[in-house]
Design a binder for these strands. Structure first.
Length: 686
DNA sequence: TTTAGGG
DNA sequence: CCCTAAA
């Protein structure tokens, strides 16, 4: 019996980032990808959005102390930005936290003294992320973590840190190593699926366990996203216990009921009411089969530590609009849009509402998000201080505490071990993130596309903008011809369009048919059991692409939730009829599980009966046609014949490849025999 | 529509 | 994956 469960991280859809391999293959195929193209992210590509708050450094913020706390949390950053641009220091993690710190240098030559500017310019810059030259400090958290890489200024997170936190703080803590006064931007990425946004002070001293305890519930409930605190980052004593043991798997039968914008309120309420409910509460919520999914909200909620989401959702329309503007509009257009359109930042995901400026942080915000701000929050920012800060500090400190991960679907046997579950989740996430991520920067809810701009020019660190700085994880887009965009970015879809979700049929349905004809063998692989069927016509980029299944027939299937139409709004000419120009289907690499299923089916049915194979093993995978299966088999055979070094893509277990060869040989022989048999006959006839 | 192959 | 000829 297979238990179908879904891990919902809040995002319902997204274009799965192409894996490096995919890209490679694309190139091979003569589809040159320009750097720019790759980096160009479709808003809908946004995997996660987290915002940080840019805080100004109060003259003498009491912050100095915070640094120390950081150490506790293994978030020690101590490189001298000035001296070693790329210095990377990894500090042992005392408590198993997985914080990563990125040092970001704010660049704005104009304002700064010559020296500085020159220095800055010398820093490696990526056209993509030019504005950020980062340093990453990674503490090893666990087996899987640790492969963060800095690539041309881009933060590539291949393994663990998929769930991280973003904290943005002012340079309040300038005394300590970590928090240098010289103003580096500090971004701390933590694995805890929580967002901590606040002053550096707060951040640094996020010792208050309580703070976060209360958070999860609110976030989760509204989000319908499962929090996956892998590492207890907050407090060792906090309720977030055994780091990774907290993966929550939620079974959802009624995702379709996403209520979109309405959630925020609920969540807020909830939050306020039971700000301290911890994991228990979360679990409960998660366990509930009726919780609703509202991807968009998730974003908001998630990023809204304050729980003050209202501002963001003035109206559904707004939300929708905003989203679209941010996510779907093609680069060029978006740019224009951002500037002139009225969409403006009405509290975009990372808009104003996102971060409350310290001053505002008093009212309900404080109440709802008390710990976060912890006394320091307010202290951090006095207008006057800001000014001074600016004048003397050329750096901004950012701390990214967490990023959001797109919704995932997980199916795993009840008998699977927790460990395997963890692995499965990890794989799924890794696959998503491993494809290469890009970081998007949003200021005032607007995406900053011009990487050449300095932070200052962008408004980051400017006193009037400090409240709206956001970061987004964007899958590097390997295939992002504008047209394709239509099908992407489900997560962008405003909650207003619940239908997409509705399409998602409860898994139970799917299960059986595959099993029915399945052989008694426990391992009979029938993808029907775990391969989510495609969503209608809409190419659901999310789908299998990001799913990875382990041999145990567990599979993760990100759930696409958007309808093409909904997203189509952006591409002007495309919205009417998407079928006009046949779009190339999105690439969906076969997962190992699928391969396994395929091999098994072919072993039994032989080659040449692709329709049967399809019916047998992929009946529920609508996106896999018999032609696809045939093609896959073809490539599998080829793959099996070449040396492992030449293979690309997700490595297929040798065992499977061997079976492929065996089966192929066998059936080829059979075919030959058949022909031989017929030969004589024909001869005779003749 | 399904196969079988080349692109 | 796509495109098609052929069945």
């Amino acid at each position: 019996m297979v238990l179908q469960k879904r891990l919902d991280y809040g995002f319902n859809g997204y274009q799965v980032p192409a894996t490096p391999r995919a890209t490679r293959s694309a190139r091979r195929r003569g589809t040159p990808r320009k750097r720019s193209e790759e980096n160009q992210m479709c808003a809908f590509d946004l995997l996660a959005t987290v915002a940080g708050k840019l805080l100004l450094d109060p003259e003498s913020s009491p912050s100095s102390s915070n640094t120390s706390s950081d150490k506790d949390r293994c978030t020690v950053v101590n490189q001298d930005w000035q001296d070693g641009n790329k210095a990377l220091k990894v500090e042992p993690c005392n408590q198993g936290s997985c914080d990563r710190i990125f040092m970001v240098s704010e660049q704005f030559p104009q304002v700064h003294d010559e020296n500085h500017s020159s220095k800055e310019s010398s820093l490696p810059q990526n056209d993509d992320q030019s504005g950020f030259t980062s340093m990453i400090t990674t503490s090893n958290c666990s087996e899987r973590l640790g492969s963060d890489k800095m690539v041309n200024g881009e933060i590539k997170n291949e393994m663990g840190s998929f769930i991280s936190k973003i904290e943005v703080g002012s340079s309040a803590c300038r005394e300590s190593d970590n928090c240098k006064l010289d103003g580096e931007a500090k971004i701390l990425v933590n694995d805890t699926g929580k967002v901590l946004i606040g002053n550096v002070n707060d951040v640094c001293s996020s010792e208050d366990p309580v703070v976060w305890d209360g958070e999860p519930p609110a976030i989760v409930s509204s989000d319908s996203s499962a929090k996956v605190p892998f590492c207890g980052d907050h407090n060792p004593q906090s309720s977030c216990p055994a780091s990774r043991d907290d993966i929550k798997v939620v079974s959802r039968d009624d995702d379709e009921n996403s209520s979109g914008c309405t959630h925020p309120n609920t969540s807020t309420k909830y939050f306020k009411r039971a700000p301290r409910i911890g994991d228990r509460r979360i679990r409960k919520i998660l366990a509930s089969k009726h919780w609703k999914v509202s991807p968009r909200l998730n974003d908001e909620t998630f990023s809204h530590p304050d729980g003050d989401i209202k501002p963001l959702y003035r109206s559904r329309k707004d939300c929708y609009k905003r989203q679209r503007s941010q996510m779907n509009i093609p680069f060029k257009k978006r740019k224009l849009f951002d500037r002139g359109s009225g969409v403006k930042s009405d509290g975009g995901i990372n808009g104003d509402g996102f971060f409350h400026s310290p001053e505002e942080g008093t009212g309900d915000a404080t109440g709802s998000f008390p710990k976060l701000r912890g006394g320091t929050g307010r202290s951090c920012s006095m207008p006057g201080q800001r000014a001074s800060f600016q004048s003397r500090d050329s750096h901004v400190k950012l701390r990214i505490k967490s990023f959001r991960v797109p919704e995932l679907f997980i199916e795993i046997p009840e008998t699977a071990t927790v460990g395997s579950l963890k692995r499965t989740v990890m794989e799924a996430v890794t696959e998503i993130l491993g494809g290469g991520l890009h970081i998007g920067v949003l200021v005032q809810g607007k995406k900053v596309r011009d990487d050449s701009k300095t932070l200052l020019q962008t408004g980051i660190s400017h006193d009037n903008q400090l409240d709206a700085l956001g970061f987004t994880l964007e899958p590097s887009r390997s295939q992002s011809p504008p047209p394709l965009c239509t099908g992407d970015s489900p997560h962008l879809l405003p909650a207003d369009a619940p239908q997409p979700l509705a399409r998602y049929a409860p898994n139970p349905t799917i299960d059986h048919q595959g099993t029915s004809d399945a052989s008694p063998e426990p391992h009979e692989t029938n993808l029907g059991n775990f391969v989510e069927s495609d969503h209608d016509s809409a190419p659901s980029p999310t789908d299998m692409s990001a799913s990875k299944s382990t041999t145990d027939s567990k599979a993760l299937v990100p759930v696409p939730a958007m309808s093409v139409e909904a997203l189509a709004v952006v591409p002007v000419h495309r919205k009417s009829k998407r079928s006009e120009i046949a779009q190339r289907r999105i690439r969906r690499p076969f997962s190992v599980a699928e391969v396994e299923a395929l091999v098994q089916a072919v072993e039994k049915l032989g080659t040449g009966r692709w329709r049967d194979v399809k019916l047998r093993a992929f009946d529920n995978a609508k996106h896999r046609t018999y032609v696809d299966l045939k093609d896959k088999w073809k490539t599998l055979v080829h793959t099996a014949r070449i040396s492992p070094q030449q293979r690309r893509g997700e490595p297929v277990p040798q065992e499977l490849l061997d079976r492929v060869l065996t089966a192929h040989a066998y059936w080829s022989q059979q075919q030959a025999k058949q022909q031989l048999k017929q030969q004589p006959e024909t001869c005779l006839l003749l």
